[in-house]
Amino acid sequence: MIPAGSLLVAEGLRKTFGSTTALDDASFSVHPGEVVAVMGPSGSGKSTLLHCLAGIVRPDAGSVTYAGREITGLSDAERSALRRSDFGFVFQFGQLVPELSCVENVALPLRLGGVKRKEAERTAREWLERLEVGDTARKRPGDVSGGQGQRVAVARALVASPKVVFADEPTGALDTLNGERVMSLLTDTARRQNTAVVLVTHETRVAAYSDREIIVRDGRARDPERVA
């Protein structure tokens, strides 16, 4: 049932918030270095699926296995540690700490993982360069454009060399050109370092950057490949 060689696999996820069912028997899998788009109408449970996969939300039922290890049963601290070391995140907006400079924002995951400040910021600066926003290093997020900010966020998601990057509508707040650029930077870099990307989006054009898509509808995640 579980595709061989999967890095992150979810089976039969169920999650309700109050009386609304966000996930109802959802399944998912991603291989190392694979970019998977999670698509579906709004309110279909895309984000909840992403939160469950990333160990942010504990599902009511079902399992999430990461690198052969069941993570739904882990404690909050263990899941936090896992997110720090193995996962990266990009959200639609409001994710950079406004009072930290861009380079400090990018260095944050490294520093949370125990890397010394100087070294963390040196690595962060390299990543900013790689994402073509080296000049924002000393600026605060409020002083850079939306596209630049999102690239800083991508840099932050990738800086700790995670195994999986979770991107929730990463281009949602950007214009087309900036969105395209962020997507190609994100997926190119992820592929180059064999990082899997779970990309939640409702835009097909953005989803076209993926290797494969799954559709979430009414809390059910369908993987067209696996159904076919």
Binding site: M39, T204, A208, S210, E213, I215, R217, P224
Partner: peptide
Amino acid sequence: DGQRAEHLRLMR
């Protein structure tokens, strides 16, 4: 869904 998959294939 089927049509979307087909579209996506081309879009990729």
